[in-house]
Amino acid sequence: MRRVRRRCGARRRALGRRRRLTHLATLYHDDVMDEADVRRGAPSANSRWGNSVAILVGDYLFAQASDLVSDLGTEAVRIQARTFSRLVQGQIRETIGPADGEDALAHYLAVVADKTGSLIATAALFGAKMAGASAEIQSTLTEFGERIGAAFQLADDIIDVASETGDSGKTPGTDLREGVPTLPTLIAQRSTAPEDARLLDLLSRPLTDDAEHAEALTLLRVHPAMDEARSYVQAEADAASALLAKLPDSSAREALQVLCDTVATRLG
């Protein structure tokens, strides 16, 4: 029995390392793609060592994550490979942008699902498998991970606009300055109200001018798009929370509920 517990503990630790390595690798690659200088308040890898080194280190981390998973069997390797596939598809979608006539918001939500939802969904699935959960619970936790992962990323979109300090680890309005589409800006861009003409003009391009950047932040913070974005994230967190009702009552379920509540409280 002790050997079984030690083996299960070793597997959980390996999966934890896999998740952290995979996540870090995606951040290294993201920063190269976005030409980001800062990651959570610290210099990004690409700004310190250049794009080539950052890409190679990201690839190395992916390889290490795959090596860890290989000890868990062919099914685990298959799940990991399919997760990588979704991550890359999401990055390709984001790089190319929406096709002519495609809804920009729907395109963006699909990107978030592939790049963030897939990661958390796989982490949840691995946890369920290692715990010996039933196929039904594995499916429920996978969907939970997909929803809460996407909700967490979309909450970041709102914080990027709403935060007035660098407490979040990001300079407020970073995405706005770089012209990166996010949930609040994409919702705002659907407006046809004449009074939004100035905001729509500002959102149509990167805002390198400090005065225009500050003006756009001010206008966007009081725009109805912010409340609509918050409602969308809250709905996703609520949907994730509802899935937890299918799980047995346990400390693990309570912890996942706290995660749902945390996503909502991050919105301010």
Rank of each mutant, 00 (worst) to 15 (best):
residue 84 F to M: 13
residue 102 E to K: 01
residue 88 V to A: 12
residue 73 G to L: 04
residue 55 I to C: 15
residue 108 Y to T: 11
residue 90 G to R: 01
residue 51 N to R: 14
residue 64 Q to I: 05
residue 67 D to W: 02
residue 108 Y to I: 12
residue 83 T to F: 09
residue 57 V to Q: 14
residue 80 Q to W: 00
residue 116 T to P: 02
residue 57 V to W: 13
residue 98 P to D: 07
residue 89 Q to Y: 01
residue 47 S to F: 02
residue 69 V to D: 01
residue 44 S to K: 03
residue 70 S to T: 03
residue 100 D to K: 06
residue 78 R to H: 11
residue 63 A to P: 06
residue 73 G to A: 02
residue 91 Q to F: 03
residue 78 R to A: 12
residue 44 S to L: 05
residue 96 I to V: 15
residue 67 D to I: 01
residue 72 L to K: 05
residue 41 G to M: 06
residue 56 L to Y: 08
residue 52 S to M: 13
residue 47 S to N: 05
residue 103 D to A: 02
residue 71 D to A: 14
residue 62 F to E: 08
residue 82 R to P: 00
residue 90 G to L: 01
residue 104 A to L: 07
residue 48 R to E: 14
residue 113 A to E: 12
residue 74 T to E: 15
residue 105 L to H: 08
residue 62 F to R: 08
residue 101 G to L: 02
residue 66 S to I: 02
residue 60 Y to G: 15
residue 94 E to Y: 02
residue 87 L to R: 01
residue 115 K to C: 00
residue 42 A to P: 06
residue 58 G to A: 11
residue 117 G to K: 01
residue 55 I to V: 15
residue 95 T to Y: 08
residue 73 G to K: 04
residue 111 V to S: 10
residue 48 R to K: 14
residue 99 A to R: 07
residue 95 T to F: 11
residue 110 A to K: 10
residue 48 R to D: 06
residue 59 D to P: 12
residue 107 H to S: 14
residue 45 A to G: 05
residue 106 A to Y: 09
residue 40 R to H: 10
residue 43 P to G: 10
residue 94 E to K: 05
residue 85 S to F: 12
residue 107 H to F: 13
residue 117 G to R: 02
residue 72 L to N: 07
residue 119 L to H: 08
residue 55 I to A: 12
residue 60 Y to K: 13
residue 67 D to N: 03
residue 76 A to H: 14
residue 106 A to F: 07
residue 90 G to Y: 00
residue 101 G to W: 05
residue 104 A to K: 14
residue 112 V to M: 15
residue 82 R to T: 04
residue 119 L to G: 07
residue 88 V to D: 04
residue 111 V to Q: 04
residue 38 V to Q: 06
residue 76 A to Q: 11
residue 89 Q to E: 14
residue 112 V to W: 13
residue 78 R to K: 06
residue 105 L to A: 09
residue 117 G to T: 07
residue 68 L to I: 11
residue 74 T to N: 12
residue 91 Q to P: 02
residue 87 L to E: 00
residue 106 A to G: 07
residue 75 E to P: 07
residue 68 L to Q: 05
residue 80 Q to M: 02
residue 91 Q to W: 04
residue 41 G to D: 03
residue 94 E to F: 09
residue 114 D to V: 08
residue 39 R to P: 01
residue 100 D to W: 04
residue 107 H to K: 09
residue 43 P to I: 03
residue 81 A to W: 00
residue 101 G to C: 03
residue 95 T to D: 11
residue 93 R to E: 05
residue 84 F to S: 12
